[in-house]
Amino acid sequence: MKGLRRAAPLSVVYAFMDAVRWRPHAESATPRRDRPIGLYVLEAGGCEGCFMEIESLAGSAFALEQAGFVCVSDPEDADWLLLTGAVTRVCAEMVDRVWRAMPPGRSLIAVGACAVDGGPFPAGYATLGGLQALTPVRRSIPGCPPSPQDILDALQELARL
């Protein structure tokens, strides 16, 4: 078996065994919840770096679901809106539309420097300069971009509040 593992996988079965072996585990104790917190991710006009790091977090290299979160594709299923990017003026309508589609009890979290105050893209003819132009930003995750682990740690911290 040791020899098999060392060799490059030559079949889908070996590849599947590899994927299982790599499966990440939540490192810290996760508080029990009735159901996972639904995350809806929205890019509103940045470099896309923060969005891609959340995409990595939602992929198979991180234990997002074991940590008590699940990414959803419909805002009606979401508890938290994770917003990335500087919020262009064209995207403001999209942010509002998605926010209104979320059920009561929703939360808004700015991920990355742009989403808070625009970062390197402050207010201009095409940009609002981050969420703070629309609403007070109470929950945010700093970084440019924050790593998937940073984002996961911050989400767990926010979930404990």
Binding site: A44, T88, T127
Partner: peptide, 11 residues
């Protein structure tokens, strides 16, 4: 593509 336009060149 307007949603992604940030006016980078002008900056």
């Amino acid at each position: 593509a307007g949603g992604a336009h940030r006016g980078v060149v002008s900056r």
